[in-house]
């Protein structure tokens, strides 16, 4: 297991779903940090560490909604899975869409799995717990393992150049290796560690059984 908290990027625009997903995840057994962005453009800025997200931590797992403002979830998938430095990051599509075209498109764009958000609160809770159990404890993810050369790099810091580059085996590009080795991946920047929480729409979809 990693010696740092599991990093999750939640890409979701519904305040109610953000709040609920965070609540359920934070009750789970695995220590984790949850960063939240509310549209596809921010998701891409976060992943590519652009603008205000220049210090963003590389996520171990992305929970991606599809119907998002500005840039939709399928476009986010397209962009990140084209990038050799980002495409190994696990993406769980978590959406209300049950359209076959969305499901097939997500898999064709190399989403790791597709989960339809249950409307029922109890089933929603089970779905999020299922994601935690499978992706955070059963599956092995590349990001939660120490990158190759990491121990050596820490043991004997080089006077010049990045330690990662002197230890890589050539499987990873140097840009990616620098990224994986970067200390910013394991520190807590704090700024995005706590996301916007409950909005007025909290509960409107699930609590009390009333569906509008």
């Amino acid at each position: 297991m990693p010696s740092r908290p599991f990093e999750i990027l939640l890409v979701e625009d519904s305040p109610g779903d953000i709040w609920l997903t965070r609540e359920i995840l934070m009750q789970g057994p695995i220590p984790k940090n949850i960063s939240v962005v509310t549209d596809g453009e921010q998701a891409l800025d976060y992943l590519f560490q652009r603008g205000k997200f220049s210090g963003a931590r590389r996520p171990d797992l992305i929970l991606l909604d599809l119907n998002l403002p500005r840039v939709n979830g399928l476009q986010v998938l397209t962009q990140m899975k084209k990038d050799s430095g980002l495409r190994a990051i696990t993406v769980v599509v978590l959406t209300t869409s049950e359209a076959r075209s969305d499901i097939n498109a997500a898999y064709d764009l190399n989403a790791n799995c597709y989960i339809v958000k249950p409307v029922d609160l109890e089933q929603f809770t089970q779905a999020i717990r299922g994601i935690e159990e499978f992706w955070m404890s059963m599956a092995v993810l590349p990001t939660t393992l120490p990158p190759m050369g990491a121990e050596e790099a820490q043991a004997e810091p080089k006077a010049s150049g990045t330690p990662a580059e002197s230890n890589g085996s050539g499987l990873l590009g140097s840009k990616l290796r620098r990224r994986l080795m970067s200390p910013r991946l394991v520190r807590y920047p704090g700024r995005y560690a706590h996301s916007p929480v409950p909005g007025r729409r909290v509960g409107s979809r699930r609590f009390g059984g009333a569906r509008s």
Partner: peptide
Amino acid sequence: KRIPIVVIASSERYEDVFHAYDLHANAYI
């Protein structure tokens, strides 16, 4: 390509796990 592939392997080496996801394995166990 859309059929999910779960890789079951003995190795827990970083390179192997990374390689599998880089080749778009859906999950690695």
